[in-house]
Amino acid sequence: NQASVVANQLIPINTALTLVMMRSEVVTPVGIPAEDIPRLVSMQVSRAVPLGTTLMPDMVKGYA
């Protein structure tokens, strides 16, 4: 089972991601792979992401 990136806190719209905002977790459906966490740092979210939400490619500007 592949771990995905999950929000560790509420991430407001247009916030630049930092390591403390993200954790890896095995979830369904699968989201952005956990190994991409270093690449996500400083990228902005395109919408508010609630705590515990799996990050999907369309939620991060410039990821897809």
Score class of each variant (00 low, 15 high):
Thr54Lys: 05
Val41Glu: 04
Pro29Met: 05
Ile32Phe: 03
Ser4Asp: 01
Val49Tyr: 02
Val6Gln: 04
Ala7Phe: 02
Leu51Met: 15
Ile37Cys: 04
Leu19Tyr: 14
Ile37Trp: 03
Val26Glu: 15
Met56Gly: 04
Thr18Val: 06
Thr53Ser: 10
Pro33Phe: 13
Asn1Gly: 15
Asp58Glu: 09
Val6Ser: 02
Ala7Tyr: 02
Met21Thr: 03
Thr54Cys: 04
Gln2Gly: 15
Leu10Arg: 09
Thr28Ile: 06
Ile37Thr: 08
Tyr63Ser: 03
Val26Phe: 11
Pro50Gln: 13
Met43Gly: 03
Val41His: 05
Tyr63Ile: 04
Pro29Arg: 03
Met56Pro: 01
Lys61Ser: 13
Asp36Glu: 13
Leu51Cys: 05
Met21Lys: 03
Ala16Asp: 04
Ser24Thr: 12
Val49Lys: 00
Ala16Cys: 08
Val5Ile: 12
Gly62Lys: 09
Leu10Ile: 14
Asn1Tyr: 15
Ile37Phe: 03
Val49Pro: 02
Ala48Arg: 10
Ser46Tyr: 14
Gly52Ala: 07
Pro50Thr: 15
Thr28Asp: 15
Val41Gln: 05
Asn1Ala: 15
Pro12Ile: 05
Arg39Ile: 12
Thr54Asp: 00
Val27Glu: 02
Leu17Ile: 14
Pro50Ala: 13
Glu35Phe: 10
Ser24Lys: 08
Ala3Gly: 14
Thr15Tyr: 09
Ser4Trp: 02
Pro33Lys: 07
Leu10Phe: 09
Gln9Ser: 08
Leu17Ala: 00
Ala3Glu: 15
Ile32Asn: 00
Leu40Pro: 00
Glu35Pro: 07
Arg47Thr: 10
Gly52His: 12
Val60Ile: 10
Ala7Met: 04
Asp58Gly: 09
Lys61Ile: 09
Val49Asp: 02
Arg47Gly: 05
Ala16Thr: 06
Thr28Glu: 15
Ile13Met: 11
Val27Lys: 08
Arg39Met: 11
Pro33Trp: 11
Pro57His: 15
Gly31Tyr: 02
Val30Arg: 04
Glu25Trp: 08
Ile13Glu: 14
Lys61Cys: 14
Ile37Tyr: 03
Ala48Leu: 14
Ile13Asp: 08
Met43Asn: 05
Met56Ile: 10
